[in-house]
Design a protein around this nucleic acid. Structure first.
Lengths: 335, 335
DNA sequence: AACACTTTTGAATACGTATTCAGAGTATAG
DNA sequence: CTATACTCTGAATACGTATTCAAAAGTGTT
C-alpha cells in the first residue's frame, strides 16, 4: 500500500527542514521566496497533501463543524442543510453529519460527537438534554440549536418566531371571515408545534373565538392527510384548517380533494407553515407562513462564530420573523 | 477554558499507566478486572472521552467515510443520504459530508477530502475526473460512485440499470398503444440521463418507431414543467411523455393540467423515473420506474467494505434493476 | 568596521493516543 | 523446586504536524 507522503519527505526532496515545509503550508509565516518555491515544487512532485489529522492534533482545532439533522427526509431540511454546507465550504470548514429521529434524545450520539472534537455543534429540531448541553459547555464546544430552543439551558438558539407566526395566521383566517377553524398539530412536544399552536389559539381567544377543532399529526404528509379526513368528514366540518407544517397541509389538500371531494379554497381554506418548494406548485398553491431559511442560517453561523471567538459570551435566542406568503389556498385573499 | 481530560489524567487518578487506560478503551486487550474497573471509574469521574483525532493519527484510520452529494434538494437524495447515515451509524463510522453542484467537477473539493484521510469515499451523481480517481487510488482511498459510473476508471460504482429501465418504459408505452411519444431529458452529460435515453430510444427503434419528440431539462421540476408546455402546445402534441426523473414528471403533470388544460392520463400519459415519495400522492399518482434505494445503498456499503478489506480487488460495477411501479398516469394500465 | 535590529531557518518538542517490547508476576508441569 | 508458559503491566516510541527557541544570516546605520 502506498505510504502517505509526509512533510518530512517533502523537506528532504526540497533540501529544507520539516519546519519550513510546515510554514509554507500554514501561510502567514515568513519563508524566503526561493525556498517557498522549492518546497511547493517538491510537494507537487510528490503529491503531498497536509494531514489534517496531525494538524488538528497540534492546533487543537479540527475545523470541523458537527451538525445534527432530524427529519432529513422532510422537504424543509435538505435546503437548510445545503445552505449550511455552502457557508461552511466558504469558511473552509468541514461538516460532520449526524441524524437523529425527529424526537430522539441525541444523548446517545453525543459521545461520538465529543470524540471528534468538533469546533462547534449545530442541532436542528432534535432534543438535547440539559446534561449534554452542560457536557458540551465543559468541553468548550459551542452549541447552537436551530428551530428549537431550551429556555434554561446554556445553548444558543435560532428560531422562527413561531408564536407570532401563529398569531398572524389566526388574524388572517378571522379577517377573511372563516367561521369554523381547525388546527392540525405536529409532534406535541416539539416547540415548533407548541409555539405555533400557542400563538394561534391565544389570538383566536383574544378575538372572541370560543372553540375550534384540533387534530394531532406528526409533521409528515400522511398524518396531515389522515387528520384532514377526520376533520372534513364531520357533520360540522371546518371551513379553515391551519396545519403546523406545509407537509401536513399538502396532505390536507389532497385529503380534501381526493378523500372527501371538496374544493380548495371554496369549501375549505388550508394554510401551512414553512414554505417548502412544493407549496408553490400549481397543484397546491399553498398559502403559508414562510420560514426565512437564509436569514436563519446566516444568524446561526453568526452566533456560532461569536461563540467560537468568545466562549464566555451569554447564550442568546434569536427569533426570525416568518413571512406570510399568500397563494391560493385561503378563501378571501389571493396574491 | 476547561482543559481536555486526557488518558494521562485518567491514568494518574486510577494509579495505572497511560497504556493501561488506552487498553481499557480499545477493548480486546487484556487488563485485569480490578484495574479495568478503577480506570472506568476514574474516566467517568473526570468525564474522559478518548480523543478521536489522536487515535486516528496512530491507528492510521479515521473511521470517517466521506460522502459527496449533488442535488441535495432534489427529493430523491435526502432519502439516500439518510440510508447511508443509518448504515454508517450502525458500523460506528462517522460521516463527512460534501456537496457539489449536480454537474460540477469535484476536483476542487478533493483536496479537502484527501486532507482528512477518510477511510472511503462515496460520490453520488457528481463527476470525478479520472485524474482524481487515480489520486484516490494512490492514497489507498476506496471510491464508490453511486448512480453514476465511469467506464475506464478505477472507481467502483453502483447504479440502477438505467438502460434496461428505459427499455421497459418504451415497451410499456408501446404495449398500451401510444402513438406519439416524447422524451424529456435530464442534464445531457449525466449517465443517468444518457443511459435511460439510450435504452428508451433503442427499444423504440427496435419496435419500429421511426421518430419521437425530445426536449431537454435538468432533472428539476421547473424544467419538466417548461419542457412539457413546449411539447403539449405543439399541433402534433404527444400522447405520452417519458421524463428522465420524477421531479420533471411532476412538473410535466402540472404543466399538462394547469398550463395547457389537459387530463392525465386520458389526453396524455406521463411516466417518470426514481419513485420519489410525492409520486404516490393522490394529486399525481405517477407511474414510474422505481430505483431500489435500499438495495443500492446496501450494495454500495458492501462494495465499500470489500474495498477497505482488500484494496487490490478489481473495480466492480453493480447494476440494480429498477422496478416498474404502476399508478395512474399512464393510459391503458392501472394498478 | 562595529553595532543593533530584523528576517529566515532548523532542532527540538508538544499534541494524545496505540502499540511494541521487555520485565514482573503467576500459574502449570515436570 | 526448577523450568516453562502465560497474563499483566509500564516505559518508551511512533504517528505527522505546528510552534517555540535559539542560532544564523541579512540589513541598515553610524
Amino acid at each position: 500500500m502506498p505510504k502517505h507522503v509526509t512533510s518530512i519527505d517533502v523537506a528532504q526532496l526540497a533540501g529544507v527542514s520539516q519546519s519550513t515545509v510546515s510554514r509554507v503550508f500554514t501561510d502567514m509565516d515568513s519563508v524566503s521566496p526561493d525556498k517557498r518555491q522549492r518546497v511547493l515544487e517538491a510537494a507537487h512532485e510528490l503529491g503531498y497533501v497536509p494531514n489534517a489529522i496531525a494538524r488538528s492534533l497540534t492546533m487543537k482545532r479540527t475545523n470541523i463543524i458537527g451538525i445534527v439533522m432530524a427529519n432529513l427526509t422532510s422537504p424543509f431540511y435538505p435546503y437548510v442543510l445545503e445552505k449550511f454546507l455552502q457557508h461552511f465550504y466558504q469558511m473552509d470548514k468541514q461538516t460532520l453529519l449526524f441524524t437523529a429521529a425527529p424526537d430522539q434524545d441525541i444523548d446517545d450520539i453525543m459521545p461520538h460527537i465529543l470524540q471528534h472534537r468538533v469546533d462547534a455543534l449545530i442541532i436542528t429540531s432534535a432534543k438535547l438534554s440539559t446534561a449534554m448541553a452542560d457536557e458540551c459547555l465543559r468541553y468548550g464546544i459551542p452549541v447552537i440549536l436551530f428551530n428549537r430552543y431550551i429556555l434554561d439551558s446554556n445553548a444558543n438558539a435560532v428560531c422562527t418566531d413561531n408564536v407570532e407566526g401563529g398569531r398572524v395566521v389566526a388574524n388572517l383566517l378571522l379577517d377573511t371571515g372563516h367561521q369554523r377553524i381547525a388546527y392540525i398539530a405536529g409532534q406535541p412536544n416539539a416547540s415548533t408545534n407548541t409555539d405555533r399552536e400557542k400563538g394561534f389559539s391565544d389570538r383566536l381567544r383574544e378575538r372572541g373565538v370560543k372553540e375550534w377543532l384540533r387534530e394531532e399529526g406528526d409533521f409528515f404528509y400522511q398524518s396531515g392527510y389522515d387528520a384532514a379526513v377526520r376533520l372534513l368528514s364531520r357533520p360540522d366540518r371546518p371551513d379553515a384548517i391551519f396545519c403546523a407544517s406545509d407537509n401536513m397541509a399538502l396532505g390536507a389538500i389532497d385529503a380534501a380533494r381526493y378523500g372527501v371531494g371538496l374544493h380548495i379554497p371554496q369549501d375549505v381554506s388550508i394554510i401551512g407553515f414553512d414554505d417548502i418548494p412544493m407549496a408553490a406548485w400549481p397543484s397546491y398553491r399553498l398559502t403559508t407562513m414562510a420560514q426565512q431559511v437564509d436569514v436563519m442560517v446566516a444568524e446561526t453561523i453568526d452566533l456560532m462564530l461569536r461563540k467560537i471567538e468568545e466562549p464566555d459570551s451569554k447564550p442568546a435566542l434569536r427569533l426570525v420573523p416568518g413571512r406570510l406568503t399568500i397563494r391560493g389556498s385561503v378563501r378571501g385573499i389571493q396574491p
